[in-house]
Amino acid sequence: MTITQAISNAARRANGRKRMIVLYWFTQMMVAALAALPLLGIAVPMLAHSGWAPELLKQFDVTFITEAMQARPGVGGAAFSAYPLIIFLTMTSGVFLAGGAVKLMVQDATVYSPREFWSGCGEYFWRFFRLMLYSLLLYAIANALAGSVKKVADKMWGDGLESAPMVMAGWVSNALLILLCGLVSTAMDYAKVRLVRDESRKSLRACLGSIWLVLRNPRVMGAWLILAVFWVLFTMLYQPVANNIPAVKMPLILVLALWQQLYILARVWLRFVSWGTAAELDPELRPAPLPPEEFVPVLSTGATEDYAI
């Protein structure tokens, strides 16, 4: 199976589970809304009845940010200190939702039902959660590797008086970081698929096996690259339109909000296609386990029947 065939099949799988994608998107939005509350809790009460609101809330206005910090140092501090926890919770919720999503993307014959989805979320949560913890280590290694490129360049450049080579070294380092993160992310997709397909609880084995699989089959990174290109294309379509919606009146604000959510929905779809692609390619890339040995009865002496082996 070629990569494009795998992606195309995965897209078909995703399109066949539209209701699941919508459920995923909705749940994700609810979690994001919860995480947004601390920020909104500062901005909205400060400005909901202020004539300065339109001016101060213009995008992420630098004056408003410092004014808010000055006006409510305690609240602002609390909101910012809450964010590591919020990031952890959003990551965890992502892991939770992935359980249901991967289960339904992997199993060909399963008919989508919310019950199946939520049961998958619960069933695979701890396996995927352990996988997430392992992946953090892998991302740290990726970051260190990419950072070392910059350090080496810095050392080689020494007292050089031009910044261009260092800026370009930074680009190389960033590109390497993105590639390595893509590699780890792809491997984690395969690990999830493996855990679901094998009904295995061995997250570490799945993680290492998938890293090995991705390294042995670099073409799977081609799938990652194609999906990344799709993401860039979606973004290039989204941003200019969003830039040109003059969101000052309510109908246009709602149009913008709708456009934003369409973009998010597209990104959710891409995530599903990514899992689906892993589900498509996994059986081909991973040698199927040997069939169990057949039972061969031992015949007693003098038997008259023949057994075909």
Partner: peptide, 23 residues
């Protein structure tokens, strides 16, 4: 308020999707 809320929500959703991709 709606504009601001929509923007904040949108950026957080994007952040969540990135986190989902990496985890």
């Amino acid at each position: 308020s709606t504009h601001w809320s929509a923007n904040v929500l949108f950026w957080l959703q994007n952040l969540m999707l990135i986190l989902t991709s990496v985890a």
